[in-house]
Write a protein that binds this DNA or RNA. Sequence first.
DNA 1: TTGATATCATTTGCATACGAATGAATTTGA
DNA 2: TCAAATTCATTCGTATGCAAATGATATCAA
Lengths: 158, 158
Amino acid sequence: MGRTAVSAEDIKLKLVETEEPDENDYRLQEQVGFILRKAHQRHVSIFAAHIADLTPPQFAALAKLHDVGETSQNQLGSLIAMDAATVKGVIDRLKARGLVELSKHEVDKRRLLVNLTAEGRDAIERLIPIAREITEETLAPLSAKEAAIFMKLLAKLA
Amino acid sequence: MGRTAVSAEDIKLKLVETEEPDENDYRLQEQVGFILRKAHQRHVSIFAAHIADLTPPQFAALAKLHDVGETSQNQLGSLIAMDAATVKGVIDRLKARGLVELSKHEVDKRRLLVNLTAEGRDAIERLIPIAREITEETLAPLSAKEAAIFMKLLAKLA
DNA sequence: TTGATATCATTTGCATACGAATGAATTTGA
DNA sequence: TCAAATTCATTCGTATGCAAATGATATCAA
């Protein structure tokens, strides 16, 4: 008698429970987005410890300009993954510090050309070796093989 | 004769070149920090497409409160990797929207306790399934096996 | 050619993110 | 016990980051 004493309500409850074990075990700490944010924070912190007077976006702008030479503000932004509003602020601050200079495009009057100053060129050339150390330190928790795999997968995600 | 015609200058030049092929081949696009930033940007964009009325940090705060219940503002911050100044802004905005309520700690008068409101609880429980989809879509460029490896390595980095 | 579109840059508003300084309350240690 | 150190929260200043609106200039298409 007792062994078969399972009501319809019991069964329904069981089903509901196994159908959605969802809300109970959502672990924020294991979600990509959350960990990506933390990993990025850690990198920024390592960067700041090595290069105190420049932010990563500012460094990116200088490094890219060093790479490609004169470009328009918007184009530079697309090269370093910054929208127009953001890149403007970054360039303004670099200009205020004399690392970059602006000029108007002769033909297309909408464009604002950006270029490194001599000081900006010196700065970026001096900083690139340090940037290599920053990359290295950021990846330090991984073995060489792990780092290679990680970079490949990260590039797929980005 | 011709085969051994290598001057001291030639050798020095060769050495210099192999000692620092550095500044010439620094590729911003291949640095961890740069790609991490882009991957994070992509995730935030995916998040916004699924959950328009909440930011990832706001979601994190609600999810963590749902997980651990009432906590102090600072403690919540450390649980979701936000410093005191940042967490205050996030909590202020959640409070203004009625998703969270604040109260003073009876014993330790320095602490400000944060708790979900009924509305906040409803919201986070409704959003968690969507957050799973966001995680899934963020990892979509990777196979299941790649995603598992990536998450393991990313966790090591963060 | 000219009217519709598109592009480049700027501005505004909002939301992280964090260092540094400050004040209040608590804990520690001599 | 009481002064020093620590912790919690707030505020200020600076720097991304992005959506949306705007104005100027270019390009395209009918």
